[in-house]
């Protein structure tokens, strides 16, 4: 129920302290733990476990909050059990499939495209930038870090509105800049022209990616700067003694040492990319021609605009499975990394 909707991964645990046994505890300690934990467990069961179970159940019903339905959670009755119907529908790839199914397919494709573009682009910007910021004078470093971090704490609605204005076809800064370079009027509708496609990637999606990157890089930047500061001086000094400078140093010392951090950052970035909603909703509303329709937007639309909550729950389960698969993959990769 936390609106922050945190998404993350566990850092390597400190070695678990030697188990102390419940039996060894005094009565006062037991009372303390019990009196604190019991309400918490009840609370978690209601606000955290119940929604999860409920969401899973909804996925098997044709549910709408508009209808009364059965006694238990409004399921049954006018909101009938449909079994795997929603999931079977998802596998209907015919062009004649119902609109909601085709929109779901588009959403999955766009979501994957978005997430898999965001990660390399993010790392390509943040890694060199972190190394450069780390290499400059101390006071300047703090200032730069602050500047690049400002967008992270800016509301995403604000970010979308600002970028929407920069990309505005007639009044935007980008077209004005292009126009003055080319010496003629430029009115490209970056976020609204369905015919603008580069290979498989719609330009409108690129526009959203740019806005999202601008907002998001500050975070990885901080992580990488911290990791760079953690590189022992001795290794650097040794490399400098060997004559390593700038790029060589970065490629042969920094990158290999940062590997686990990079991997972790990459996966966190990807997982949060799957859950971006605000910028899409405000900047493009899924348009043009559904080219920027992502799963989160699709789920919201179905659940709260079309009141088709059963279907929306089923698609949200798919989102969960995608995120889960990536989390598991991440754990495997990280584990092998540490064994290294």
């Amino acid at each position: 129920m936390n609106s922050a909707a945190t998404q993350s991964t566990v850092l390597p645990d400190a070695p678990t302290p030697r188990p102390r046994f419940w039996q060894g505890r005094t009565g006062a300690q037991k009372v303390f733990v019990l009196s604190a934990l019991t309400p918490m467990i009840l609370y978690v069961a209601f606000w955290s476990l119940l929604p999860i179970v409920w969401a899973a159940a909804l996925a098997f019903f044709d549910y709408s909050a508009r209808r009364q339905g059965g006694v238990v959670l409004g399921l049954g009755g006018d909101n009938p059990f449909v079994g795997l119907q929603h999931f079977r529908n998802m596998l209907n790839f015919s062009p004649e499939a119902p609109l909601e199914v085709r929109l779901f397919h588009i959403s999955v494709k766009t979501t994957l495209m978005f997430a898999f573009l965001i990660v390399p682009l993010n790392l390509m910007i943040t890694l060199p930038l972190a190394a450069m910021i780390e290499s400059v004078h101390n006071r300047l470093r703090l200032g730069l870090r602050t500047i690049f971090f400002l967008p992270v704490v800016t509301s995403s609605v604000g970010v979308a509105i600002m970028w929407g204005y920069i990309l505005h076809p007639q009044r935007g800064l980008l077209n004005a800049g292009l126009g003055s370079v080319m010496g003629r009027m430029v009115a490209i509708n970056w976020t609204g022209d369905p015919s603008l496609i580069i290979g498989p990637i719609p330009v409108a999606l690129i526009a959203v990616i740019i806005a999202y990157l601008w907002q998001d890089i500050g975070y990885n930047l901080i992580i990488f700067i911290a990791a760079l500061q953690g590189i022992p001086e001795s290794i650097r000094d040794a490399a400098i003694m060997d004559g390593a400078t700038g790029i060589t140093m970065f490629r042969h010392i920094t990158l290999p040492l940062l590997r686990p951090t990079i991997l972790l950052a990459a996966i966190l970035t990807m997982i949060s990319a799957f859950q971006v909603f605000d910028i899409f909703q405000v900047m493009t509303r899924g348009g043009p021609d559904n080219q920027t329709r992502v799963l989160t937007f699709d789920i919201y639309d179905n659940a709260f605009r079309f009141q088709n909550m059963g279907w929306a729950a089923a698609t949200s389960v798919v989102l969960f499975l995608i995120v889960l698969a990536i989390s598991l993959l991440q754990n495997r990769m990280l584990r092998s990394e540490w064994e290294y």
Binding site: H168, P169, Q170, A187, N189, G192, D193, S195, R285, G287, P288
Partner: peptide, 9 residues
């Protein structure tokens, strides 16, 4: 219709 539609202008 790319510059003038329900979303822009």
């Amino acid at each position: 219709p790319v510059l003038f539609n329900g979303e822009s202008n």
